[in-house]
């Protein structure tokens, strides 16, 4: 249920992203989803990959500051109003979203939204009650 996401501290300098992508590529690690939160000085790169442990080791060994964060992947209809149908029950259930990002699934007509909640267990309960489908972690790593 809970998906492991890598968060990497990155200075806002030319070539930092390219270097991380190259290191992961050379280790045959596939990036499933990605988002970057940035300010003028630094950014936080968030990655979901097919092999979390290996990616974590590679990045740490090369001197990056990396942390593991648990997130939830929710499947939403890839149509107008799709995202709203998920957010509404969360609002009603009083669940706070720290951040979120989305991508579109290749083989289906669904989109996947990655949520970082303030209280992940409470969020999962609310989603289950609203019958919103949460993707198993293994599925997300293989997307």
């Amino acid at each position: 249920m809970k998906v492991k996401q890598l968060s990497i501290f990155m200075e806002n300098r030319a070539g930092r992203m390219a270097e991380i992508a190259r290191q992961l590529g050379e280790a045959r690690i596939n990036i499933r989803a990605l988002s970057l939160a940035d300010t003028s000085d630094f950014g936080i790169l968030r990655l979901i990959v097919n092999d979390v442990d290996k990616a974590m080791k590679i990045l740490k060994d090369s001197g990056h500051t990396v942390s593991l964060t648990e997130v939830v992947a929710v499947e939403v209809p890839d149509s107008p109003g799709g995202l709203a149908s998920v957010l509404e029950p969360l609002r009603a259930g009083g669940v706070n979203v720290e951040y979120m990002y989305a991508f579109v699934e290749k083989a289906t007509d669904k989109a996947v939204v990655i949520f970082r909640f303030e209280d992940i267990d409470a969020a999962v309960k609310v989603l289950a009650k609203a019958k919103i489908s949460v993707l198993p972690a293994e599925t997300v790593y293989k997307l």
């Binding site: 996401q5 968060s7 501290f9 939160a37 300010t39 630094f42 936080i44 968030r46 500051t65 990396v66 942390s67 964060t69 720290e98 951040y99 970082r116």
Partner: peptide, 15 residues
């Protein structure tokens, strides 16, 4: 230098 002790996945905490 942002080591693991100083790092947070959340922008508002880093700020």
């Amino acid at each position: 230098e942002v080591s693991e002790d100083y790092f947070s996945d959340e922008m508002k905490k880093l700020h």
